[in-house]
Design a protein around this nucleic acid. Structure first.
Lengths: 192, 192
DNA sequence: TGCGGAATGTGATGTACATCACCTAAGTCC
DNA sequence: GGACTTAGGTGATGTACATCACATTCCGCA
């Protein structure tokens, strides 16, 4: 499926737009290609776009003072990613985004999103529901963090996204789970 | 400030509604009073309302298999609370909500919210931004969980909401931080 | 094709936290 | 106002994880 059809199918799941409206909306998106390892948003950047993933896999991550990385999100096809804190509050990026594999994305500016949302009620409806799903996912992950040990969270992650096992190096999985790579290694190499 | 004015001021911060539109929107809210300890949503309930806090403090929490409680949110005046997962997906409550103190709330059904959102574009706009803020807060808390130790998270919480220190028993603070009450007690009673 | 860096495995050791057990003080209810 | 419950403090002990150190394997690239 091409980028336009992918986005269309994605949006029509939650909003009702006719072809003309969708074409108008789509005209604000720019397609971009990235190579594996390429940086999309770097800490300190001015952030004014968000990204809809067509193919490949990106990661959104935070690096703390001790140069330790925590991954907030693996962004797979049909997922959206950016530093939303910086995007909405017009502050510099604290979250970085880069590419785990070659990737195709559709890119939309914050201003254009707000313009579309104010012009097309159903577009605003779509973005409300998209954020909603993100909120629920984040809350679920928070609960899992408090309630489950590392092993349970690891199995939960792989059950939800089996592709990650082959696609993503283990030290990045560890950075998503919030444990050291050594601990993760010991976990799934335990004899028992 | 009375409930109606409180809600109005809250909504007008992010949306543009004239008096007639706001009065119409407000007509869907029902006012409710709760006593300290009273239960608003109990695990297993059918959930069809969300709650806007006028006064007092509620908590939204999860209880795991070992009867350990984790607090997702302390809901203070002008905050919204519910089991949003259950509310949006029409499933039974896994999150419970009850009152830490006597409380006044305005209550809105899921159906009515969706009706209002489809009728008034600016209402949809408001609810998009509300969810947005929730999403960003949740993501921030997730990062804090991965990056900071308990002491730092405790100080972060009290710096952000100083009222909690007197309003909320310490074992509930511990349940919010995701540590045992013993650990929290030792933390701030340490001599050094 | 072979070199250098990245990814991964594994042992030794330290530490933050949980858990259990028990104690005291402060509500709260008939 | 005494009895019972709830909040909170503190010691002893166990454990899941981090950290450091080093070995090994993999893999892109000049």
């Amino acid at each position: 499926m091409n980028p336009k059809e992918t986005l269309k199918a994605h949006i029509l799941k939650t909003a009702t737009l006719n072809d003309k409206e969708f074409d108008y909306l789509f005209s604000y998106f720019k397609q971009q290609s990235f190579k594996k390892g390429q940086v999309v948003i770097s800490e300190g950047d001015k952030v004014d776009h968000e990204y809809f993933v067509i193919s490949g896999c990106l990661k959104a991550f935070f690096i703390n003072d001790e140069i330790k990385m925590y991954i907030l999100q693996f962004a797979m096809p049909t997922w959206w990613t950016s530093d939303y804190g910086a995007l909405y509050n017009h502050t510099r990026a604290t979250i970085s985004v880069d590419c785990i594999s070659d990737a195709e994305v559709l890119c939309l500016s914050n201003d254009d999103r707000e313009k579309i949302c104010s012009e097309i009620h159903q577009a605003e409806h779509f973005f409300r529901w998209r954020t909603n799903r993100g909120y629920l996912a984040s809350q679920k992950r928070l609960l899992s963090f408090m309630n489950n040990d590392t092993k349970a969270r690891y199995e939960e992650l792989l059950a939800m996204y089996p592709q990650l096992y082959n696609l993503v190096p283990k030290h990045l999985i560890a950075a998503y789970l919030g444990v050291s790579r050594e601990t993760l290694s010991r976990l799934y190499n335990a004899q028992k």
